[in-house]
Amino acid sequence: MGDELRRLHFAAGFGTAREVAGLLDQVDDVDAVFDDRTALWQAVNGRNFDTVELLLAAGADPARQMMSGWSPARLSLTTEHPLPTDEVLTAEERAAVAERDRLVAALGRNPDVDGFSIACVGGIDADEAVRRLDASAVPADELPDDLDDWWEEPFGDDNELAVGITDVPGGCVVMQPWYFNASTPVVAGKLSVGTVVYSMYANPKSGNQGRIDRDGAVVDWDLHPGGPPNAANSTADVLLIHLYARQAVACCCAYAGLRPTDSKAFTEPDRWLLLPDRDYWHA
């Protein structure tokens, strides 16, 4: 029964209604909980609305409480297909949904390649970030004319130390198109003193790898921005993670309180800097 339940939940979240229909008669309880949520919750979270209707017809309970207070019905209020319910979203939650729509539209799919790293820094500007990192400006005559092709690594031997930085509403963004240095523990630790940083490396081999630093210390790591929430997340964090499913860069921005109006910080940074040559994995 465990394997059938696992397959039902996976299909509800990531598969098709036809796949779910083929699995329903293999489980005794359509509302059985796997990994702290029901198949209906998985379908709502995955925006698989045909599957949602199928599970409701099979008797799934949309009001069942789980995931820090997010029943399937209440979670559906954040989507374009809300279910009938007496539950409501708070004003703050409605504002978070609206900001998600704005932010995702502003960023599009940028950056649209893997291999980059970012640090979304709340509450400080680029000048302060440069000071904390003890970084130096790349001389203007060493800047390439065309940065469209990130994979050419235009700074030669210094490409592992070269990062871009841009002020955005709410803070600043440090990014590196071709390496992971913008997301290393030393960079995140220095930038997070007195504030919060959500950093991420878009690893071409293993997917998005995130961490959260607050006031100079790591508070969570081995994260997967754009991935699913878990029951240990707070009510607010379950909402944020759900809202930014498959939107990893926007998720990092939202967590740090950044409100960029376009994707420029991730594609055409305002400034290029060279970090000091040191070990960025150990303080």
Score class of each variant (00 low, 15 high):
G2E: 08
D3R: 11
L5M: 12
R7Q: 14
H9V: 05
H9S: 06
G13R: 14
G13S: 07
F14M: 04
T16Y: 09
A17I: 12
A17D: 00
E19S: 11
L23F: 00
D25S: 13
Q26G: 00
Q26V: 00
D29I: 01
A32C: 13
D35P: 05
R37A: 15
R37I: 00
T38R: 08
A39H: 02
L40A: 02
V44L: 03
V52L: 11
E53T: 02
L56D: 03
A58W: 01
A58R: 04
A58Q: 01
A60P: 04
D61H: 11
D61V: 00
A63N: 11
R74V: 07
R74H: 00
R74W: 05
L77F: 09
T78P: 09
T79N: 05
H81Y: 10
L83W: 02
T85C: 12
T85E: 01
E87V: 02
T90L: 12
E93S: 09
R94Y: 10
A95M: 02
A96E: 01
A96G: 01
A96I: 07
E99R: 15
E99C: 07
R100G: 01
D101Y: 08
D101Q: 15
G108I: 02
G108Y: 06
V113L: 05
F116Y: 15
A119P: 00
D125H: 12
D125L: 11
A126I: 10
A129Y: 12
R131N: 04
S136G: 10
S136F: 00
V138E: 09
V138Q: 11
P139Y: 09
A140S: 15
E142D: 14
D146M: 04
D146F: 01
W151A: 15
P154T: 01
N159Y: 09
E160P: 01
L161Y: 14
G164D: 06
D167R: 04
P169N: 09
G171A: 07
G171F: 13
S183M: 06
T184I: 04
V186G: 03
V187Y: 02
G189P: 00
S192T: 08
T195V: 09
T195S: 15
S199Q: 14
M200Y: 07
A202K: 08
P204Y: 06
P204E: 05
S206W: 10
G207H: 08
Q209F: 06
R211D: 00
I212H: 11
R214S: 14
D222C: 13
L223Y: 04
H224V: 06
G226K: 03
A232T: 08
D237P: 05
V238L: 06
V238P: 14
V238I: 14
L240A: 13
I241P: 08
Q247N: 12
V249C: 15
A254D: 09
Y255P: 00
Y255V: 01
A256I: 02
G257T: 08
D262I: 01
S263V: 08
A265Q: 10
T267V: 15
E268C: 02
P269D: 04
D270Q: 06
R278F: 05
R278G: 01
D279A: 03
A283Y: 14
